[in-house]
């Protein structure tokens, strides 16, 4: 297989895994003030992602770094064309990280309130804007020989916004299920109920998205050419239904795994449709950034492939190991007692 294709798959995988793992962090960040009634509950909710959110965010750094190393022209144009949107995402991620890490550092209601707002806004905004950005990439970006012809407002077109809302709902369901699995008693029941209700909204938006995609983008062309690929979106739909099926039986862990699969396959539905483009041009196909015209040299790709094949499995192994160490459910009492440990 050509290295470009290997890196296209890796590129898609890095983004998909990023959204799968940081996705529930976003969901938890959006929901924590609504599901958590007391200070103890809020603390517990945030504590569920405390040990892992930072490691999750590195998938984004790696996705960015991999784009730079494997497809430098795409990295350069994507990041400079989407400057303002990325800037907002950066600010939001910084604010979220600070909120998460410093919330417990000062015992003062105003400080905590400030951190809660930071966590909420720092989770909602990236979730929405990543969706908007990917929606626009699916549609194609207005670029030609003279460069970029868009701006931040033009990114907020109906299809971009719909994708943004899809991402937000996806992560809300995902985060609520994570909380349902990671907490106990009342808190867990409230989280399950939020997941159950928002699932219907997600279903509606997902159906709209699949239909609108046929009109707004060219993504389905690849599927019609090679129907075998329909397995990806079909899996996404089945996984989405699986979330509800497991939940109805009270199997929230199964439900959470189904939502992991949903996030992965939703991203891959888009990525598969993009091939061989990384960013299509909405103006002139000749100026689309493809995995062939924007890639690094075969030599660089070969070296990066070796690095990825050795280290990505190692990373996944120790991350799973750490997740397993923290697998048990948290109770509010325990978390409050933990107080002094950090």
């Amino acid at each position: 297989m050509e290295f470009q294709i290997i890196w296209f798959i890796l590129w898609g995988t890095l983004w998909a895994v990023y959204f799968m793992v940081d996705g529930f962090d976003f969901g938890v960040g959006i929901l924590h003030s609504f599901i958590g009634k007391t200070e103890g509950e809020k603390k517990t909710i945030i504590r569920t992602i405390g040990p892992v959110w930072d490691g999750n965010e590195v998938w984004l750094v790696t996705a960015g770094g991999a784009t730079f190393a494997a497809f430098p022209a795409t990295y350069a144009l994507m990041f400079s064309y989407l400057y303002s949107a990325l800037l907002l995402i950066l600010f939001a991620l910084i604010v979220r990280g600070v909120g998460l890490e410093f919330r417990e550092k000062v015992e003062n209601a105003g400080w905590k309130r400030g951190c809660d707002i930071a966590i909420f806004a720092g989770s909602l905004l990236p979730a929405l804007l990543f969706g908007v950005a990917f929606g626009n990439i699916f549609q194609g970006i207005p670029m030609d020989a003279n460069g970029y012809h868009g701006n931040l407002l033009r990114l907020l077109n109906p299809y971009g916004l719909l994708t943004g809302i899809l991402f937000v709902l996806l992560f809300i369901v995902h985060g609520a299920l994570w909380l349902s699995v990671k907490t106990n008693g009342d808190l867990s029941r409230r989280a399950s109920s939020v997941a159950g209700k928002s699932w219907y909204a997600l279903l509606v938006v997902a159906v709209l998205f699949l239909i609108y995609t046929a009109f707004a983008t060219n993504l389905y062309a690849n599927y019609l050419e090679n129907p075998v690929w329909f397995v990806v979106p079909v899996t996404a739909v089945l996984a989405l239904l699986g979330i509800k099926l497991f939940a109805l039986k009270g199997g929230y862990l199964g439900s959470f795994y189904a939502s992991c699969l949903t996030v992965l396959t939703v991203i891959f539905t888009g990525v598969t449709g993009l091939y061989p483009n990384l960013i299509p041009s909405s103006l002139d196909k000749n100026y689309s950034l493809t995995i062939f015209n924007s890639s690094s040299s075969p030599y660089t790709l070969k070296i990066m492939t070796v690095v990825a094949l050795i280290f990505v499995p190692i990373v996944i192994s120790y991350q799973i190991w750490v997740y397993r160490i923290f697998r048990q459910k948290l109770t509010v009492d325990e978390v409050l007692k933990e107080g002094g440990s950090y």
Partner: peptide, 23 residues
């Protein structure tokens, strides 16, 4: 781009994952 991507893969994951375990 290569050293930057390697930095993330080899080092950032390691520090960010194990700092969580340490805390």
């Amino acid at each position: 781009g290569a050293p930057l991507a390697i930095e993330a893969t080899v080092a950032f994951f390691l520090e960010s994952t194990f700092i969580g375990l340490w805390i």
